[in-house]
Each structure stands twice: as structure tokens, then as C-alpha cells.
Computed example of a mutant assay.
Amino acid sequence: MKKVQLGDTDLQITPIIFGGNVFGWTLNEEESFNILDAFVENGFNAIDTSNNYSHWVKGNVGTESEKIIGNWIKSRGNRDQVIIATKVGGRNLVQEKYNNTKAHIIKEIEESLIRLKTDYVDLYQTHYDDTVTPVEETLSAYNQLIKEGKVRYIGASNFSSERLKESLDKASLFNLPSYKTLQPEYNLYDRQRFEEFLQPVAEKYNLGVIPYYSLASGFLSGKYKSEEDLEQSPRGERVKNYLNERGFQILAALKILSEKYNVSYAALSLAWLLKQKTIVAPIVSATTKTHLAAFSEALNLELSHDDVQLLTEASRY
């Protein structure tokens, strides 16, 4: 399968990244292994996780996703065949606030490496900006980790455009590592914040954008068309805000193209993302092998300019 360069790095990834938030949540370890096996068998190679997935599940400690991925890597012996991205700085059960201090990052990478059963991560991302810690302190932690060989590249997620730009500028000013990627919320429905504020920064600084919630928590798969449908999945409650006139307008446009190309709504939604400037690879989760089919569909789909415009106009904000 064709690979693409991830921003200004030498990481070569397939243009869809598996979102590891489902591991330890809607998938147990055995099910996670099966879906990861199918993912790489289909030619994909990049997996995104965090040191606090999935803390929202009752009974979890919040490190289940990294543990499952680590156990899978060890059992398959395939560390050199996959690109692993994880995050630091988000809340978990014992940490009430975002924390991007140098001491915290240095501590957390060691624990993530143990869970992932590896001695390095390919992409280490600041999960949330704590807005208190100076950006140069955070970057100095990454500088140490890169020099030690524990981290190859760094990325940012959930930043304001102002703090993202400050981080990039100070990296240059103080000769510190610079963020190479940006992981924002972005999909056909949730467009405005990224397009108006973050995309211009990503374009100016050549950041590789890897958006999360690429299918709007499953809404863009067409699975949810009424409040009754929300009961189908643990993620259903998150979809309620999409059940409005604009949301239904998007689904109507997806229906037209789905019938035209005989592909899934999910594939079309991902294909639209891949046509947007600065987007390198959407992050998407899957819980069945059937869901994985949409990944390949999206990469094989050649949307015309008119197709892209149809979806863009239907999702106008």
C-alpha cells in the first residue's frame, strides 16, 4: 500500500491511522489483537494511542490502550513494522489537571515505554496544552528524550492556534525540537475551529495534520439517524449533538455519493478529509473487520472536484 511522509519527518505511514482509544473500552485484549492483525494485514502501519486511554471506562486505570498495544507488539514481534504514536499531558484518574512540565513528561515516557514494550516511540504528542507551563519547558523535555533516543519526533494536539504558534516560534528561537504534526478534532461536521484558526498555522509551518474524530464518533458512518439509534453503541451519546438539520444535510449528501460509487459513508467522509490541504492521515477507530473495509475504500476512492464540493457545501458552517 502506498505510504506518505508524515509532515517534516522521515516517518512513512499509510494515509489512515488506527485510533487506539477503543482498546480496553469497546474491545478487550483478544478482540484488539484480532483487529490490529487485520489492520496490518491490509497494509496499514500507523497506530495512535495515549497514556490515558481508556480512563473513562469504569474499572479501568487509564493505561489499558498502551498495555494492549505493547502486548500485541511483543506477541507479534513486529515493532520495526509499525509506527507508534502516543501522547502525554492529558487528565487521567489520578491527575486532575493537564500537565506538561518537564518532570512529568520525563516520568511519563518511561511508563509508556514499559507499557508499549519498546525502547522508543515514533511520535510523542502533547495531548492537551496546560496553558501554565512555559512552552519552552515542555520542549526542553522533548529535547532530552530525543537526544536519549526515546522519542523520534514530537507533535501537538488540542492546542489553541496562539499557543501552537508560540511553541513553534520558540522552538526555533531556542534551538529546541519543533512539533512536526498536529492532531486536532476535524471532520465533515466539525470544521470551523480547525479551518479558521489551526489550518493556517499548519500550512505555514508545514505540520502534518492527523485529525481525530474523523467520523464524528461514528455519526458520519450513517449508523445514527435518530435518537433511538444512539443505543447501538457506547459511543452513541456523543453523537446526539449531530442530530440536527446540518447533520442530516451532510448525511443526505453522503447518501448521494454512496449510491454513485457504491461505497460506505465512512469511506466518503475519510476521502473528503484526504482532499483537504495539510491533512496527511485521518485517525479512525474500528471494532470489526467490516469497519476496516472503509479504510481501504477511502484510499481507493477518487472523488471528483464536484464530489468534494457537494460534501463541502452540505457541511457549510
Rank of each mutant, 00 (worst) to 15 (best):
K67S: 15
R79W: 13
Y124M: 06
E137C: 10
E136F: 04
E108D: 07
T133M: 12
I106M: 12
L123H: 00
K147L: 04
N100F: 05
Q199P: 07
E137F: 06
F174P: 11
E137D: 14
F197R: 05
A171F: 00
D122P: 14
G149L: 08
Y128K: 13
Q192W: 00
T63M: 05
R115E: 03
L164G: 06
V88A: 01
P184I: 00
V121Y: 09
T63D: 13
A141P: 08
R152W: 03
I106F: 03
L116W: 08
K107M: 04
S160C: 13
N78T: 07
T126V: 15
I105Y: 05
S140F: 09
R76Y: 10
Q183F: 08
K165G: 06
E64S: 13
Q81S: 11
S140L: 00
F159Q: 03
S161M: 12
Y142G: 12
T63F: 04
Q125P: 10
Y186G: 08
Y128N: 15
I109M: 09
N99K: 04
K74T: 12
T63G: 07
E136Y: 13
K150L: 11
Y179E: 03
L139Q: 14
Y179K: 07
W72M: 03
S140T: 11
P177V: 00
R79D: 07
Y186M: 10
G155H: 04
H127S: 14
L164Y: 04
K117F: 02
T101V: 02
T118K: 13
E137L: 06
N71I: 09
F197T: 01
K67G: 06
F174D: 09
E111V: 10
S112T: 04
S157G: 09
I146G: 02
G77L: 11
E66G: 14
S160Q: 12
A141Y: 02
L139P: 01
K67C: 10
I69M: 11
K147F: 01
E195A: 05
G77R: 14
D80T: 11
G59A: 06
R191D: 05
W56Y: 01
Q183I: 12
I68F: 13
S178H: 06
L139I: 02
N71W: 09
S112Y: 04
H104L: 01
Y124Q: 10
K87N: 15
I69H: 04
Q199R: 13
Y98C: 14
T138N: 00
L182N: 07
K117Y: 00
H104K: 04
I106V: 00
T131D: 08
I109Q: 07
E162L: 15
P134Y: 10
Y179V: 05
A171C: 12
A141I: 00
V82T: 13
S172T: 13
I105F: 06
A141D: 00
L168S: 05
K74C: 13
S178R: 13
N78R: 02
G90D: 08
H104D: 07
P177M: 12
F174G: 10
D122C: 03
Q192G: 01
L145H: 03
L198H: 11
I68Q: 09
N100I: 00
E196F: 02
I83N: 04
P177D: 11
G70V: 08
K102A: 07
T118D: 09
E110F: 08
Q95F: 00
K67F: 08
K147Y: 07
L198C: 10
